[in-house]
Simulated scan of single mutants.
Amino acid sequence: MAIDRRTKMSPEETDAFLGSHETGVMSLARTDEPYAIPISYGYDASNGQFYTRLVSTPESEKRRFLDSNPDARLVVYEADGDTYRSVIATGTLVRIDPQELTVEDVQQYGDAKRPLFEIWPKQKGELDIELYRLDPETLSGRLIEISREK
């Protein structure tokens, strides 16, 4: 029989988990329509903010969502044997004008690695590459450990 133990991660555990990962799934919502994409991110534990570069084409579905100032939810997770961890951040995605970048912002975007799944059929000059920050209104981490008894 499998028995699971579910616990809430402490703020320190949540920050450590987010700092040790670099990819997740971001869901965007406008009215009743959802849109989810894999992303890479940088995380600043000192202010609890996520930094990401999002690439789209002018006519893409992603661009239509980003232009609508959507609500956002970022899910970062891992499964390691019988231990599962996940963190969910919800909030508003804010576009950052490159002219307004601070030194701290540049450092955070440097931590947002380019994901391996980023493949584009268009030339780089035809792509919109924009910087965003997620300031979470909520941030919660969960840990599930499964023990198997015989």
Results as ranks from 00 to 15, higher is better:
Tyr43Leu: 09
Val75Ser: 13
Tyr43Ala: 08
Thr83Arg: 15
Asn47Asp: 15
Ile88Tyr: 00
Gly42Glu: 13
Gly42Pro: 11
Asp82Arg: 12
Arg73Glu: 13
Glu59Ser: 13
Val94Gly: 02
Arg95Lys: 10
Phe50Glu: 06
Gln49Phe: 05
Val76Asp: 13
Gln49Asp: 13
Val76Ser: 05
Thr90Gly: 08
Ser68Glu: 08
Glu78Gln: 15
Ile39Pro: 05
Ile88Leu: 12
Thr92Arg: 09
Leu93Glu: 08
Phe50Tyr: 13
Gly91Pro: 10
Val55Thr: 14
Ala79Leu: 14
Thr90Val: 02
Arg95Tyr: 09
Pro58Cys: 02
Leu66Asn: 09
Phe65Gly: 03
Asp67Ser: 11
Ile37Asn: 05
Ile39Lys: 00
Pro70Gln: 05
Arg53His: 12
Pro70Thr: 09
Leu74Ala: 04
Arg95Met: 01
Thr57Val: 12
Asp82Thr: 14
Thr52Pro: 06
Arg64Ile: 04
Ala45Pro: 14
Ser46Tyr: 13
Asn69Asp: 13
Tyr84Leu: 14
Asn69Glu: 11
Arg64Asp: 03
Lys62Arg: 05
Tyr43Asp: 10
Tyr77Phe: 12
Phe65Ser: 06
Val75Asp: 15
Gly42Tyr: 02
Leu74Asp: 08
Thr57Phe: 06
Arg95Phe: 01
Val87Lys: 00
Asp44His: 10
Gly48Cys: 08
Thr90Phe: 04
Ile37Phe: 02
Ala89Thr: 00
Glu59Met: 01
Tyr41Pro: 09
Thr52Gln: 03
Thr92Ile: 09
Ile88Asn: 07
Asp44Pro: 06
Thr52Ala: 12
Arg64Val: 10
Ala45Leu: 13
Val76Pro: 01
Pro70Phe: 06
Asp71Cys: 11
Ile37Gly: 03
Arg73Tyr: 00
Gly91Asp: 01
Ala89Val: 10
Asp67Asn: 04
Leu93His: 04
Leu54Asp: 02
Phe50Gln: 05
Val75Cys: 15
